[in-house]
């Protein structure tokens, strides 16, 4: 009897659940579809407003406007490289520290946690950081994309909290087998942490992929170190240049006023920048949506 009532309760729950999810889906997919439609709509027509899910006057001009810039290939390569390298190193280092800090028996646990967590709440400011980067001779190098942000406290604590949720007995049994801490980390913790590592990888990758400010600050003089987002931001700044500030407006220089509307370019840039993420996403997604079978690891 009990089983039956749970069952009908469950069906009801499912109906509500699917209805809820579909409505959430409609609401959250809208902004992106809207951007997509605008990116394919003629710029001058977009000014009139009223574009929702489908372009009114179809055009590829908003994309052509982006792809006339010839250094996009170099920029794309650099962005891919920094994303791949930055993600691998970032995930690895965060996981390592997280494991150490998850060990309740570790004698420096509290102190080291403290050193890391504080960094989330202060910053020396842009000027001293700039001077540091300069003094370390990282200006105009690729490494400025990887090294300064390599160790991130937030990632460490997210991974640590995940490890905290794992059954400790796994580690203990390994210890009895005589494995040292390094081996436990590689053989047991890393495989078990796949879902959270995939999540952190996603966060780092998106962060790396989207960042442009470091290129602007440190590498804007090196054409071969430019990144995709920086180039896209430049294109966007280009189109908004004519109307980007009151000062600018006063100069009233017709050469600088816009030819394509900023809204349209912003839309096509959003799509160009997001597409690679969407392509890669399913490979990471499977780790945290499907879950993993602990049994496989245990044996």
């Amino acid at each position: 009897m009990a089983a039956k009532s749970t069952n009908s309760e469950s069906v009801l729950f499912d109906i509500f659940l699917y209805a809820f999810m579909i409505s959430v889906g409609i609401v959250t997919v809208y902004p992106f579809l809207n951007v997509l439609a605008i990116s394919f709509n003629q710029a001058m027509d977009t000014v009139r407003g009223g574009i929702y899910l489908w372009p009114r006057i179809f055009t590829l001009d908003n994309y052509k406007e982006i792809f006339i810039y010839n250094n996009l290939i170099v920029a794309f390569k650099n962005s891919v490289l920094r994303t791949v390298l930055g993600t691998l190193l970032g995930v690895f280092s965060a996981a390592m520290v997280a494991y150490v800090l998850s060990r309740k028996d570790f004698i420096a646990r509290k102190q080291i946690s403290f050193v890391f967590v504080l960094t989330l709440y202060f910053s020396g400011g842009i000027i001293p950081v700039y001077m540091l980067i300069r003094d370390l001779h990282l200006m105009n190098t690729f490494w400025v994309y990887i090294l300064p942000g390599l160790v991130n406290a937030w990632n460490i604590f997210v991974i640590r909290s995940y490890i905290d949720g794992l059954p400790i007995s796994l580690q203990e049994s390994a210890k009895i087998d005589g494995a040292n801490d390094l081996a436990i980390f590689f053989r047991i913790i890393l495989p078990l942490c796949k879902p959270v590592l995939a999540t952190i990888a996603l966060f780092i990758a998106v962060g790396q992929w989207n960042s442009w400010f470091d290129t602007f600050l440190y590498n804007s003089n090196s054409d071969d170190l430019t990144t995709l987002q920086y180039e896209l931001m430049k294109i966007l700044a280009n189109t908004t240049a004519g109307a980007s500030s009151a000062d600018m407006a006063r100069s009233g220089n017709p050469e600088l006023t816009t030819r394509v509307s900023p809204e349209s370019i912003r839309a096509s840039i959003t799509i160009v920048a997001t597409l690679p993420i969407l392509v890669v996403y399913p490979f990471l997604q499977k780790y945290f949506v499907q879950g993993l079978t602990l049994g496989a690891v245990k044996s």
Binding site: I126, I127, Y130, M131, R134, W212, F213, F216, L217, S220, N221, Y230, M233, K234, A237
Partner: peptide, 24 residues
Amino acid sequence: LKIDYPVGDPKQKIALMAASGEYP
């Protein structure tokens, strides 16, 4: 000519140039 344009707040870049003493 090799011209560098700002993308973010130009004031920051100018301040950094001034602080570091390295200019184009």
